[in-house]
Design a protein around this nucleic acid. Structure first.
Lengths: 210, 210
DNA sequence: CTAGAATTTGAGATAAATCTCATTTTTGAG
DNA sequence: CTCAAAAATGAGATTTATCTCAAATTCTAG
C-alpha cells in the first residue's frame, strides 16, 4: 500500500497520458503531506513530479480539480480498507471503535494520507459528508441494538468528525500515541451515551480482537 | 456592547493616533466577519475604516499583528463576560454548561465575534490554548466534586473545543438553533462521563436559572 | 496664526501565484 | 523508419497581494 505511488501503481501498461496524470496526482499527495492542502502550489506539484509547470494544465483544469481528485481517491481507498476491517463485526460499539481506530491509524501510518484527509475534511465540506456516511450506518445499528442513546443528525456526525480530526492532527504534531487514539474511541462511545466504564471495556475488547 | 465599534468606543478624548488605530482594529473585525480571517486583506481593512492603504503600516507591522490583536482582544472580552455569568455558580456541570452556552450565544449574537473566535481558534493555536484555559478550571472542579470522570489533558480540551467550534460554525451557516447549543452542552457533559439523562437534566437546570 | 511635528496618502516597487500558448519534443501506428 | 498526432515545455501575460516612501495634509504647542 505504498502511498508514495498511490496512483502510478495502477498505470502499468497504460498510455503516456495516464502515466503523467498519475505522476501529477502522486506529486500532489507528496506536496500536500509536506505543506498542507492550503499551501500546495501548482509549481510544487509539477516540480515534485519532475514535469514542467505547463504540463499540469494538459491534465487538470485548475488547482481545485486536482485537490478534489486526490481527496476523493484517498477517501475512497481508506473507506474500502475500513469496510474490510469491520465487515465481520456485528456489535455497533465494536464496529465504531474498530473503524475509528483504523481510520486514525491509517492517517498516521501514511502521513501522506493523514494530511490529505485533514485538508479535505477542513476545506471540502462535500467530502467530509461522504467520509462521515461510513459512520452513520454504524450509529444507526447502535440505536437499533439499544446500545446508543443519540439524536442521529449530520450535526452529531460533524462533532464526532471534529474529534477524530483533532486526534489525528495532535498525533501528527506531537507524535503518535495509541493512548490518544484509544481515548478518542472512548470519547465517541461516551458521546453515544455509553458510560465511561462501558466505553473503556468496549475499546479494550475491540482492540484485543485485532 | 456594540461590536461595531468595539475598539473606537474606548478612545473618547484620546489622540488621533489612538483613534485611527482603533478604527483599523474595528475595520478588521468587520472584514473578518464578512470574509473570514484567512481572506481578510489589508486593503479591505483600510477601505472599511475609510483610510488609505499606507496608513495601516503606521500602526501595525504586518497583517499578522492586527489579526492577533483583534483575536486576543475579543477573546479577553468574551472571557470576562463568561466569568461574570458563572461567578455565582458552584456546581461544575452548571458552570460548564452556562459557560459553553454563553460562549456559543455570544459568538452567534455578535457574528463579528463569532468569526473572529473561529478564525483565531483555527489559525492561532496559542489563542486556542488561552481560550480553553477557562474550561480547564471548571473541569478540575468537576473532578474534585466527583461528578466528572475524565483524564484532564490539553488533548481533551482540544476535543471539547472542536465540538464547540462545530456548533458555532454550523449555526452560523444554517441558522441559529438553541437545540444545537443544548445538544453541544449535553455532549460535553457526556464526554465528561455523565450519563445521557444526567447530562440532559444538568442542561435543563442550568438554563432555567438564566 | 504659524511652523514644525505627526500623520495620512496613494502610486508603485516587489513578490508570489495562476494560467496561456507558440514552440519543441516525444510517441507509437502503419 | 517515418511522420502526423499527442504531449510537454517554459517564457511570460495576468492577477492579486503586501509593503515602502516621498509628498501632501492635518494637528498642536507656543
Amino acid at each position: 500500500m505504498k502511498a508514495q505511488h498511490h496512483f502510478q501503481a495502477d498505470t502499468k501498461g497504460l498510455g503516456k497520458r495516464a502515466r503523467t496524470r498519475a505522476a501529477l496526482l502522486d506529486g500532489a499527495i507528496s506536496v500536500i503531506a509536506e505543506k498542507g492542502m492550503a499551501d500546495a502550489k501548482i509549481t510544487d506539484i509539477t516540480d515534485q513530479a519532475g514535469l514542467a509547470n505547463g504540463t499540469f494544465y494538459n491534465h487538470f483544469a485548475d488547482r481545485e480539480q486536482i485537490l478534489r481528485e486526490v481527496a476523493y481517491s484517498v477517501a475512497e481507498e481508506v473507506g474500502r480498507e475500513i469496510d474490510a476491517s469491520i465487515s465481520a463485526l456485528k456489535a455497533a460499539p465494536a464496529r465504531v471503535v474498530t473503524a475509528t481506530w483504523r481510520f486514525i491509524s491509517l492517517a498516521l501510518e501514511e502521513p501522506e494520507w493523514g494530511s490529505v484527509l485533514i485538508g479535505a475534511v477542513e476545506h471540502m465540506p462535500a467530502i467530509r459528508k461522504d467520509v462521515l456516511q461510513y459512520l452513520r450506518g454504524d450509529l444507526e445499528k447502535g440505536i437499533a441494538q439499544g446500545v446508543f442513546d443519540i439524536n442521529l443528525t449530520p450535526f452529531l456526525l460533524d462533532q464526532i468528525g471534529a474529534m477524530v480530526v483533532v486526534s489525528i492532527r495532535t498525533q501528527m504534531e506531537f507524535g503518535v500515541d495509541p493512548g490518544k487514539t484509544a481515548e478518542t474511541c472512548e470519547n465517541i462511545l461516551r458521546l453515544c451515551g455509553q458510560t465511561p466504564s462501558a466505553a473503556r471495556r468496549a475499546v479494550a475488547k475491540a482492540l484485543k480482537s485485532t
